[in-house]
Every structure is written in C-alpha cells, then in structure tokens.
C-alpha cells in the first residue's frame, strides 16, 4: 500500500513537474514572443498648430495646380515643418499598387505625391520612403501609375514590402480599447480571431508617417481613403477579409497613428474600386488633416455615384466609437478654399 501510494505520488510528482514544464514553456514562449512585438512609437504624434487651426483643410485647384494645392493645404495646417523635423526618417504611404494610369484614379496623383515628397525634403528629412504593398507587379505598377516619375530627382525611394522579413510582428489589440465611447464592451477582432499581423520595419522606425491616399470606392470596404490605406502597408491582408474587414481597419488605425494625412481628391474612383477601371469624377481637391475618421467622413461627399454617407461605412462608425476620430463633420472646424488656387 505504501508502495502503491509512493508510486501514485511519484506519478503525481511527474505529472505536476511535466505540467509545470509545459506551462512554463508556453509562458516562456509567449513572454519571448511578446518581447518581439514592435510598436511604431517613434512616429511623431499628430498635433494641431493651435486651437484655431482647422481640423480639415480642403483646397480646390485644377490639373495644372495639383502640386500647389497640396502645399497650400499643408500650409493651412501650419506648414510641413509642423510635421517633419530636420533629420526625420519619413515614410509616406500613397496609393501606387495597381497598373493603372493617373486618369484611371486608382493611385495618388503623381503631382500630389511629388510635391509632398519635395516638401518633406525641404523640411530636412534624412530619408523618405514611399510604401505600398502592390498587388500587381510592382515595377509595372510604379511606372504606369506615375509614382516613378513623381519621385524622380528627389531623395525618395519606392518600396513594395512584399516579403515577410521586411516586416515586424505587432500586437494590434494592445492599442484597442476594451470599452467604446458609449460604454459598450469591445473585444478586438484581432484578439477574438487571433489574427497575427506584421507591419513594415520602415514604419516602425519612422519619425514621421504620412498617409497620402486617393479617394476611391471599394467594393468590400465601401470606401478606401485614409483609414483603409493602412492596409496597403500590412503583411497579412487575407485574414482581414476573412474575419471582419471593417473591425480590422478600425483597430489597425488605433495602432498606427499617422503624423499627417494628405488626401488626394483631385480625382475620385466612383466604381469598381480599388483597382478599377471604373467611373472617375474630378473634384480637383486636395485635403489635409490629422484625424482619419474626420477626413474620410468628409470625403464621402466626393463619392457621388453611389452616394456614400459616413454612417454606411462601418469602419468609420466603429473607429468613431473607439474614440479614434470624429464622424460627424458638423462638429469640425473645416476650412474650404474654393479654387482654382495656387500656393
């Protein structure tokens, strides 16, 4: 009996020891994995120059002044020096992922991108990287959409982060509140579906991150402007489409907070987005601001063919509930400069 008890207790000891080892291992692994999570903490926070600085600036131009109205929109927010400091590593994410010409409006207009790059260079950036993870062949896409021409003669380089080692693991749920602004419990989609995500090292290491989207219809996300544009940087896009696109977009925008947003509404792709070719209108406008929810909500008015309203875009509604920004544009200080104007 004593032997039997001894045997059992030995087995128990072994079981406990084994269990402890397994749990310890799992904990240890998760601990080390957590240690590997990167955060884009260097990115300078978006700030307004003063209390009277507009939340959104919208400047109208014509095809000859797209560069000028880009500069004017930024100047109205306090100038590029508000956002880019001397020696900064600047990352810009424009739309340049498709083999579509500028007139097909699937990419940021080259004149808008070029002026933005020139401004960053003038402000003293030490490095400027333009990033978009292309679906089409990147060489062809960069050439046809005009991005190559836009950065020609500048210090900027174009990158499609199409291999995993260009990215770092990130923990998106760590930036997502567990309660919405109206007091409802919220479980991050990334957490619920255990979505693993990576973002480019360049963004992790950036001092200044500028989102430079074009206004487009999106057949799945309703719109793709500043908030959805962040998906053009990440590694794992498939899971977003599989598990809950709008939730994932909103959560990603809680994690990556750009220093500045310069939205290209010189043309708007009205249908068959994000790639087109589809119906294109030409609002001839460039907008600047720091609140992606506000800018995207305001830009819904340019998607006239489908008549998109902000309340029909679930990632705007959710991001607003998570406190990321203002969906109700009547609450904003908006400066509209009718054109056509130069700088």
């Amino acid at each position: 009996m004593a032997d039997e008890e001894h045997k059992i207790s030995r087995r128990k000891v072994l079981e406990v020891a084994g269990g402890t080892a397994v749990l310890g291992g799992v904990y240890g692994l998760s601990f080390f994995k957590n240690q590997d999570f990167a955060k884009p903490t260097k990115i300078r926070s978006a700030t307004k120059a003063s209390l009277t600085t507009p939340d959104i600036v919208c400047v109208e131009g014509n095809p000859q002044t797209y560069g000028d109205i880009t500069e004017r929109a930024i100047n109205e927010l306090g100038g590029i020096e508000m956002f880019v400091k001397k020696g900064d590593k600047v990352v810009i994410t424009p739309n340049m992922g498709w083999m579509r010409t500028p007139e097909q409006a699937a990419a940021t207009h080259p004149d808008v991108l070029r002026r933005l790059v020139q401004l960053c260079q003038r402000a003293g950036a030490s490095r400027i990287t333009c990033i978009d993870y292309t679906l089409d062949d990147w060489k062809m896409a960069f050439e046809i959409c005009g991005a190559n021409g836009a950065v020609k003669g500048t210090m900027a380089s174009l990158i499609s982060p199409d291999s995993a080692n260009m990215h770092k693991d990130v923990d998106i749920p760590s930036a997502v509140p567990k309660v919405t602004t109206d007091g409802k419990a919220y479980d991050a989609r990334h957490h619920f579906n255990q979505i693993e995500q990576k973002i480019p090292r360049d963004i992790i290491e950036a001092d200044c991150f500028i989102v430079n989207p074009v206004v487009k219809d999106h057949e799945a996300a309703v719109i793709t402007i500043a908030m959805k544009k962040l998906m053009g940087c990440i590694w794992n896009r498939k899971d977003y489409h599989r598990y809950g696109l709008h939730d994932c977009i909103a959560e990603l925008n809680m994690f990556i907070k750009p220093t500045l947003i310069v939205t290209d509404a010189t043309r708007a792709l009205q249908t068959r987005g994000p790639k087109g070719p589809g119906e294109v209108t030409t609002p001839h406008k460039v907008l600047a601001g720091i609140d992606p929810v506000a800018l995207d909500s305001y830009c819904c008015q340019f998607l006239t063919v489908k008549g998109v309203t902000p309340d029909a875009v679930n990632h705007l509604v959710l991001a607003n509930s998570l406190g990321r920004g203002q969906i109700d544009t009547s609450q904003l200080n908006i400066k509209e400069i009718a054109g056509p104007v130069g700088s």
């Binding site: 992922g97 679906l135 999106h218 057949e219 799945a220 996300a221 793709t224 998906m231 896009r237 498939k238 489409h241 696109l245 987005g273 994000p274 790639k275």
Partner: peptide, 12 residues
Amino acid sequence: LENHVDGEAQAF
C-alpha cells in the same frame, strides 16, 4: 481570388 483582385474578392 485575393491574389488577383485584392480586397474586392470579399465583395465577389
């Protein structure tokens, strides 16, 4: 299909 039309695959 995502490899071909990106996010539009979800709509299809």
